[in-house]
């Protein structure tokens, strides 16, 4: 039983870590779109970096949640 529980724990942690991929896609999407917009209108880019970082932070937070689940499964359950 202990072995089985351990196995499930690690599998679950691995599955939870997939969520980080989604965060990666999201952050890349934001940064890419920012760059595309910035190249189109470079004069407006500087004023929007704050929004860029806020957006990245929000997208990343969700990935961090899944990472947290993975950590909890690994170390706390």
């Amino acid at each position: 039983m202990v072995e089985l529980a351990l196995m499930g724990k690690y599998i679950g942690a691995g599955l939870a870590a997939i969520g980080l991929g989604g965060a990666g896609i999201g952050v890349g999407n934001i940064a890419g779109n920012f760059l595309a917009g910035a190249l189109r209108n470079p004069s407006a880019a500087a004023s929007q970096t704050a929004n860029l970082f806020v957006g990245i932070a929000f997208a990343e937070a969700l990935g961090i949640f899944s990472f947290l689940i993975a950590l909890l499964l690994m170390f706390a359950v």
């Binding site: 929000f58 937070a61 949640f65 947290l68």
Partner: peptide, 13 residues
């Protein structure tokens, strides 16, 4: 929650 976990999670990771 997101405000705090983001910071701790990033650094911990």
């Amino acid at each position: 929650v997101s405000h705090s976990i983001r910071l701790a999670g990033n650094l911990m990771a």
